[in-house]
Design a protein around this nucleic acid. Structure first.
Length: 153
DNA sequence: TTTCTGACA
DNA sequence: TGTCAGGA
């Protein structure tokens, strides 16, 4: 029987954050950053409210902005200047999205190898005769296993 | 009630 | 950045 996998489900629409929209007051409470600061950061070009077609002038922020504000706030609390906090948050977010994209491309589903549930990481070699699997050990170390494609090695 | 811009401390 | 004014 076919099983559902993140790799081929809804074109990535599952767990989408596209409809997570927040007002300035909500973002403020969620991140503990004042509305005054949020408007100031916007004036500095650090954050950008969502474009809106209706006449309403109140700001709306997407999930991405919530993440960015959270990151900046964290750096600020660590003692970095606002500019440095923005720079570091941008870098970390870029890295995080890179990792996410890489992982989604590398992930080919789950497989049970020797009674152990493992991640199928796809073909291991150029001629597609072996697949690479990985799983985490009890102490959270990553363990890799290479197995022949058809099981008859 | 919430949000907005501008201004003053 | 906080806070207040005066509107919307």
């Amino acid at each position: 029987m076919a099983r559902t996998s993140l790799r081929d489900t809804s074109n990535g629409k599952i767990f989408s954050t596209a409809n997570l929209i927040f007002g300035i007051g909500q973002i403020s409470k969620m991140t503990d950053v004042s509305t005054r600061q949020l408007r100031y950061w916007e004036s500095k070009g650090y954050i950008k409210p969502k474009e809106r077609e209706d006449g309403n002038t109140s700001r709306l922020y997407g999930y991405d902005t919530f993440l960015k504000v959270s990151g900046i706030k964290l750096m600020l609390d660590e003692g970095y200047t606002l500019a440095a906090s923005v720079e570091r948050t941008d870098a970390l977010m870029a890295e995080a999205f890179n990792i996410r994209g890489f992982l989604l491309d590398a992930y080919h589903g789950e497989a049970t190898i020797d009674g152990q549930t493992m991640l199928d990481l796809g073909y291991f070699d150029e001629d597609h005769t072996q697949r690479l699997y990985a799983h985490r050990t009890a102490d959270n170390r990553v363990h890799y296993v290479v197995k022949p494609e058809n099981g008859a090695n």
